[in-house]
Structures are given as structure tokens and as C-alpha cells.
């Protein structure tokens, strides 16, 4: 294991978030068992009070998740000089089998916390808390995932041994490789770009529809998720080339480095906010059938659609500008 303040901080944050989420899940089990909004018993009153505790915990958790996610990628990137052959986070994460699963699970848990808070916000708008059961059932699924993330992060960092020869980002994302990432990198540029622009256009149109007429939230959620994936694929296969201005460099992590003004942090944040807002808007759609939520949900969905619209539009505008101003040409 490499002994470094950032690694200690990441282990601490993973353990703390998993601990808090497990605590919240225990309250979730109590709520699922004993929740009865018609009762005025002391137990029900206590459970109602505990829901505000769980909301607060999840609010903090999202904040911790976001800081830890950025720090995780930054640390993986900063550790690359310790490994022969690693040139950025792409190589460092590949040093052992825990790196990429830990990153993907971190990303998933952050998205899940964001979506949970959206549903919670919708639920708290009305007094009969109609979404309590699905909300707390979700917590019971999220807690083991957080524990698994802690295990993967710990496994990754304790398994790091400086000097291990790893594939660098040049070979991992260099195309002509049998790996999944290499496959993405070698995708033909035109279809990848076209897919992204088509998905982004549909998302923007759907977001506009939801905002203007309050319809099409499911389409927005599906299109938002497809845009998220298409944007990642296009970033690796096409946009990165325009940003790095090197025809062979496809790495999605080097975007975070100082040399490119950390543009990756902005691009990934926009994508995260855009896709969470789009997915959240669609996720709330089935709940509109509940009478008490029927009045409050449309306005929340509209606000989410607006957030998705601006995030995806800014992302699209940024990458398009980069492509137009870059000296790289296919």
C-alpha cells in the first residue's frame, strides 16, 4: 500500500459514508416495518421525525460523494509517476482489478444519492409522504453498495505497489486493443459524433417539452441516460482528440489535468447534473398518479427539465466550440 494523506482521506470518507448509509438503512427498515401515516402513536411520530434525519444524512452524503469522487480520480492521476508505464489515471486505475470497479461504483453511488434526494424532495412537498416506502426500500439497496464501494476502494489502495508495470493510457485507450476501452477509442468518429448530437438534440427537445407542456418526462429520462453514455463514448473516441490535438490520445482522464485547464471537471460536472436531472424528472413521472403529488410534481419536473436543458446545452456548446477552434482535423 502507498501511504499518502489523500489515500487515508479517501478511505476515511468511504468508511464514513458507508457507515452513515448503513445507519440510514437501519432507520429505513424500521420505517418499512412500522410506517402507518394514519396512526398518531408515539412510534409513528418518532419515525416521522427520523425521516428528517435520513434526509439530512443523504444531503451530507451527496456532498461527501462528490468531493470524494473528484479526489479519487485526482489521486489516481497524481499517483501515476509511481508506476512504470502509467501516464495518468487510466494506467493507475489499471494497476489492479479493483481500480475501475471502484470508480464505476463511486459514480453509480453518487448518481443514486442525487436521485434519492430528488425523490425525497418531491415526497417532502406533501404531508402524507406517499413515496416513503419506495424511498426507504431504495436505501436498503444503496447501503450494501456503499459498503461494497468501501471494500473496493480499500482493496484498490491496499493492493497498490509502486513500480508494477501497467499499461499506460496510450496503450489502454490507444485503439487496436482487445479491451473494452480500446474498442470505444477505435469507434469511427462520424457515427459516434452523430449519435451524441442526435441524443443531445432529443434530450434538449424532450426537456423543452417537459418544461413547456409538462409532458414527455419518461422520454427525457431515457434520452438523458443515452446522452450520458453517448457523450462518454464520443469524449473518448472523438472530442478528446480535438481537445488534446493529438490523433492518438483518447484518454478521458487527461482532460482533468492542468494542461487542459481542468476542462474535464466542468464537462463531467455538466454531464452528471444533466443526466441526474433528466433521470429524476422521468423517475417522478409514475408518482404523478398519486393524488396528493399530482399538483406539486409537474412544477418540480419542469425545474429538473430546465436544469437538464441548460447542463446538456452548455456541454454540447462547449465541445462544439472546442471542435471548431481546435487545430486538429480528421
Amino acid at each position: 500500500m502507498i501511504f499518502n494523506p489523500a489515500i487515508i482521506a479517501l478511505l476515511l470518507s468511504s468508511t464514513a459514508t458507508a457507515g452513515l448509509l448503513v445507519y440510514a438503512a437501519v432507520i429505513g427498515i424500521q420505517v418499512l416495518h412500522g410506517w402507518n401515516p394514519l396512526s398518531g402513536s408515539e412510534g409513528q411520530l418518532l419515525l416521522e421525525r427520523k425521516t428528517s434525519l435520513v434526509s439530512t444524512i443523504l444531503g451530507y452524503l451527496l456532498c461527501f460523494h462528490l468531493v470524494a469522487l473528484m479526489l479519487f480520480i485526482h489521486t489516481a492521476d497524481a499517483l501515476h509517476p509511481l508506476f512504470t508505464g502509467a501516464m495518468c489515471a487510466a494506467g493507475t486505475l489499471n494497476v489492479n482489478g479493483f481500480g475501475y470497479p471502484a470508480l464505476l461504483l463511486k459514480l453509480f453511488n453518487t448518481l443514486a444519492a442525487g436521485l434519492w434526494l430528488i425523490i425525497n424532495h418531491a415526497d417532502n412537498q406533501v404531508h402524507d409522504f406517499p413515496l416513503v416506502r419506495p424511498k426507504y426500500a431504495a436505501l436498503i439497496v444503496m447501503a450494501p453498495l456503499a459498503a461494497l464501494e468501501t471494500f473496493l476502494v480499500a482493496g484498490y489502495f491496499t493492493g497498490l505497489k509502486a513500480n508494477v508495470i501497467t499499461s499506460c493510457c496510450g496503450s489502454l485507450f490507444g485503439g487496436d486493443q482487445g479491451t473494452f476501452a480500446g474498442g470505444i477509442a477505435s469507434l469511427p468518429p462520424m457515427p459516434a459524433t452523430a449519435t451524441f448530437y442526435a441524443a443531445a438534440f432529443v434530450t434538449l427537445a424532450a426537456a423543452f417539452f417537459v418544461w413547456r407542456w409538462g409532458r414527455g418526462a419518461i422520454l427525457l429520462a431515457v434520452a438523458g441516460m443515452i446522452t450520458f453514455l453517448a457523450a462518454l463514448v464520443a469524449l473518448i473516441s472523438v472530442f478528446s482528440l480535438y481537445i488534446y490535438e493529438i490523433p492518438t490520445h483518447h484518454c478521458p482522464f487527461c482532460l482533468l489535468q492542468k494542461e487542459y485547464n481542468g476542462i474535464g471537471y466542468l464537462l463531467y460536472s455538466l454531464l452528471l447534473v444533466g443526466s441526474v436531472s433528466a433521470a429524476g424528472s422521468g423517475l417522478l413521472q409514475p408518482a404523478r398518479k398519486i393524488p396528493s403529488l399530482g399538483r406539486t410534481l409537474p412544477s418540480l419536473q419542469k425545474r429538473l427539465a430546465l436544469a437538464a436543458f441548460f447542463s446538456i446545452a452548455t456541454f454540447t456548446l462547449l465541445v462544439t466550440l472546442k471542435m471548431m477552434t481546435s487545430s486538429f482535423r480528421f
Partner: peptide, 24 residues
């Protein structure tokens, strides 16, 4: 950024985590 983030996680996170339940 990373130094400030590490400092935040090592000091502010434990403080916030320890005070959630008492605050509630």
C-alpha cells in the same frame, strides 16, 4: 485542489458526521 479536498475530508467530514445525529 486535492490538498484542500483532503484537508476537508480529514477535518470537516468527521465534524459534520459526528454532529448530524445530535443536531437532529
Amino acid at each position: 485542489f486535492s490538498q484542500v479536498a483532503v484537508l476537508f475530508i480529514l477535518t470537516v467530514l468527521p465534524y459534520l458526521a459526528a454532529t448530524i445525529v445530535p443536531s437532529w
